[in-house]
Nucleic acid binder design. Structure first.
Length: 393
DNA sequence: AAGCCGGGGAC
DNA sequence: GTCCCAGGCTT
């Protein structure tokens, strides 16, 4: 098979396969550009099965460009809770506001217009233009690069910008006349369901007769991809502070700064420490250097890390003292690994917690009542910690 | 070009 | 547990 035959075979067979086999997904039931847009932003970061319930809830609450443009940001963030990459939710709303104001609520169909929107890069602009408007633009994501690198044996590192540009040129050539939307979705669907990262299902592949990678037995070793750096470890102490008196049953939470990691999300107060305190459980408390048991109350060894947590909150105007360690938790981001120890903290006498809480330190503190949880967006790791605390106390 | 941004699934 | 999955933005 020469290269032109290989290309024609690929486009024809893949399109036919998709039209027979494609999955029934909520955002495929219409060509509503707003639905396509929302789904593409969600799908950038998460698998289809995870996205479906989020998409349904999101569209249910914000059915139109106008509804999302006019919504409070906290509501948008709350519906995004658990999906990750929260800046994308904010970028999406900012872009939707611009469409509402500058384009009268109509998602632009010109490449230059749509590409200028926040959070819309080369992939997303191509996806919206092809799927919603059937324009012959490539939509090259990781699936597409994997499929093309195997089928045509492209050995360039797919992490490089230049490789993506090359793939876009190729993908655009392959689009069959008048079928951009279906073909681009076919490419991604093949990558997601057949031409999988590991152990691809070549036996059921609609284009395996033309696949150069398969021919040479290289389907498992393509694409070439430089390994990512491992996440750097960070040790963190977390304070679980329960109110007393009027504040009984409430937990002290805070909102993160406007920018950076987990921007504007709510969390339990915590601080990074160089070294975590040693693990001490039950009987070995007696043997811990510098520790003693006075009656029922464990007096902890002087510990620089715990003092750091206390000092951090003292700087915020919050007078607490770490007590016993409740649990450990871990959370891995792309570039950071959090190793966390959660301490129940005692409110120091002289501070009731009813005083004005710090609002701009840059954290914004609040006493959270259990029934208020649905109003605040938390990263999953803190939801897990709070749930376990509620379940075991 | 490299780092910053979460969270889940397969095995 | 250990491996994998990445698009857009900022520097």
């Amino acid at each position: 098979m020469n290269i032109d035959e290989r290309k024609t075979y690929f486009s024809t067979e893949l399109l036919a396969w998709y039209r027979r086999h494609h999955r029934d997904l909520p955002w495929r039931r219409s060509r509503n550009p707003y639905y396509i847009w929302v789904s593409e932003i969600m799908l950038q970061q998460t698998r289809v099965d995870t996205v479906i319930p989020y998409f349904e809830r999101f569209i249910g609450r914000f059915p139109t460009v106008e509804a999302l443009a006019l919504a409070p940001e906290e509501d948008v963030l709350k519906l995004w809770e658990g999906l990750g990459y929260y800046s994308r939710a904010r970028n999406l709303q900012a872009a939707v506001k611009e469409v509402h104001e500058r384009y009268d609520g109509v998602v632009p169909s010109e490449k230059t217009d749509i590409s200028s929107l926040k959070g819309v890069g080369p992939y997303t602009s191509g996806a919206i233009l092809s799927i919603a408007y059937n324009k012959p633009e490539p939509a090259v994501d990781g699936n597409v690069m994997r499929v093309l690198s195997r089928y045509f044996i492209i050995e360039e590192d797919i992490m490089k910008i230049s490789t993506r540009t090359l793939m876009e040129k190729l993908a655009k050539e392959l689009i069959p006349e008048g079928a951009a939307g279906d073909f681009n979705q076919a490419l991604m669907e093949l990558g997601a369901t057949v031409c999988t990262p590991r152990s691809p299902y070549c036996l059921t592949c609609p284009v395996r007769e033309g696949c150069a990678g398969r021919e040479e037995g290289r389907e498992e070793t393509l694409p070439v991809k430089k390994k990512a750096k491992p996440p750097r470890p960070e040790k963190r102490l977390v304070a679980l502070i329960e109110g007393t008196g009027e504040l009984a049953g409430r937990i002290l939470i805070r909102q993160r700064p406007q920018e950076g990691l987990l921007a504007r999300m709510w969390e339990l107060p915590h601080v990074e420490v160089d070294k975590l305190p040693p693990v001490h459980t039950g009987e070995d408390v007696h043997n811990m250097e510098g520790s003693a048991i006075l009656g029922e109350r464990i007096v902890l060894a002087p510990n620089a890390a715990l003092e750091r947590l206390e000092a951090h909150l003292a700087e915020e105007g919050i007078a607490i003292e770490p007590q016993e360690r409740l649990m450990d938790a871990e959370h891995t981001f792309s570039h950071i690994h959090w190793e966390m120890q959660v301490y129940r903290c005692r409110i120091k006498s002289g501070w009731s917690g009813k005083e004005q809480l710090p609002q701009l330190t840059p954290y914004h503190y609040r006493w959270l009542a259990p029934d208020e949880l649905p109003q605040y967006a938390f990263p999953n790791v803190f939801l897990r910690i709070m749930k376990q605390y509620r379940d075991t106390r």
